[in-house]
Nucleic acid binder design. Structure first.
Length: 364
RNA sequence: GGGAAGAUGCCCGAGUGGCCAAAGGGAACAGACUGUAAAUCUGUCGGGCCCCGCCCUACGAUGGUUCGAAUCCAUCUCUUCCCA
């Protein structure tokens, strides 16, 4: 995997990332399609929104339809009809989100899956194997993602285990790398010394890319900013940096300014299903009565299909009736909003005017 | 014409003497959501106020029984069903 830096502006960077499914312009936002589906969008719509990378999940695809099934259908990108660049998360986030359904040992994570309770034992090696079957362009190391406010002791143990697993993932991956890249994930929660230790250790392993994990798992926004600002520069400059699971448009702008190249978040798609739309002026809830007679688009000047086609009043009407299309219309807008934000951030970096642009892009 | 059942807050619907401004749904109104167990979850939801408490108005209408009634009695109005 080739990563070429084209320009920088402060600590922010713009570059090109080559994947087996095409070249990606950085910084970029990955649309989340956990189970090989971006909820509420067809692949044509993803392309129309200028999606670059779709993210899916090891845990979910391992549970259903199973890694072999995905492999036998030609791999994730083909299976879902997307045929573009993809990344799979390792299941590390489910250590956090499915805390009640798993048990972590030195060996790995034992899940009782959320569908039928059947056991899924994810070791670092198994997580890589599954991701090789799924066939995404970028795989993630299995990590241990603790809640941000866990005691320091737990954070440190999780970090050390994550380091051990990173090494094991890497060894497994190197047996048969193919065209896939494997990224390491730094942990350490809100402790700067641990963050530093984690970043340095992972850097020593020499991965094709590095992620900041354990963020947006219960901490406040200022803490997210602080840790991202602290950690991003510690990750190798010539490799892509990925801030996992973040975030709000403001978080992303701050992340780009801190030197992060890759983002993903469920926010645009999930919020859309809850009728919350993103705009330059901040999020709006389209179910609110005040939009009942609003004939304008969700966002003036937006080039998405929704804003070109229907009004706020219409989307609110659909939302009140819980029409499927209400969620679809907002999803189309929100995804395009995020992707367009990234396009503009990249343009600003290339033009060397990120600082001015940042304030205009999202006034919240 | 005869008989039966029933009328509860915006809607549906519990409640059958005090713990009832009245369960539970729905609607409406608002909020939350950050590597998706989420088309989910939470709050408000008769009115007013000096709003962790008090005062009004309320369970078809009117009158009555009772210390006390959505709950018991009488009459009336309306609805549904059955028989002619």
């Amino acid at each position: 995997m080739q990563f070429q830096l084209q320009a920088s502006d402060g600590r922010a960077r713009a570059g090109l990332l080559d994947t087996p499914h095409g070249t990606v312009k950085t910084p970029f936002f990955m649309v989340v399609g956990t189970a090989a589906s971006v909820k509420g969008m067809t692949v044509d719509q993803l392309r129309a929104a200028k999606t670059q990378v779709v993210l899916s999940n090891t845990y979910h695809l391992a549970v259903r339809p199973g890694p072999e099934a995905v492999r036998n259908r030609g791999g994730l990108a083909k299976f879902m009809g997307w045929n573009g660049p993809t990344l799979t998360d390792s299941g590390g986030f489910q250590v956090f989100s499915l805390a009640k359904k798993r048990k972590v040992t030195q060996e790995g994570v034992r899940f009782n899956n959320h569908i039928d309770g059947k056991e899924l034992f994810l070791t670092p090696e198994r997580a890589v194997e599954i991701q090789q079957d799924i066939g995404a362009d970028i795989m993630m190391c299995l990590d241990v993602c603790p809640p941000a406010k866990a005691p320091r002791d737990d954070i440190q143990k999780s970090m050390l285990l994550t380091h051990d697993w990173a090494k094991r993932c890497q060894a497994k991956w190197q047996e048969n790398p193919g065209g896939q890249a494997l990224f390491g994930i730094a942990q350490g929660a809100l402790f700067e010394d641990l963050r530093q230790e984690s970043a340095e250790y992972l850097a020593s392993l020499d991965f094709p890319g590095y992620a900041i994990g354990g963020v947006a798992v219960g901490e406040d926004t200022p803490d997210i900013r602080r840790i991202v600002n602290f950690t991003a520069p510690l990750l190798p400059a010539h490799k892509p940096r990925y801030l996992m699971g973040v975030g709000t448009p403001a978080d992303i702008i701050a992340g780009v300014q801190a030197g992060v190249d890759m983002f993903d978040c469920v926010m645009p798609t999930r919020h859309a299903r809850h009728f919350q739309a993103f705009t330059r002026e901040g999020p709006i809830n389209l179910k609110n009565a005040k939009f009942a007679e609003d004939d304008g688009p969700i966002e003036e000047g937006c080039d998405c299909e929704t804003c070109r086609s229907v009004s706020r009043a219409y989307v609110r009407h659909l939302a009140l009736l819980n029409e499927l299309m209400a969620s679809v219309w907002v999803t189309l807008h929100n995804v395009r909003f995020y992707l367009r934000l990234m396009e503009k951030l990249r343009e600003a970096i290339l033009a060397g005017r990120l600082a001015e642009a940042a304030g205009e892009l999202y006034r919240v």
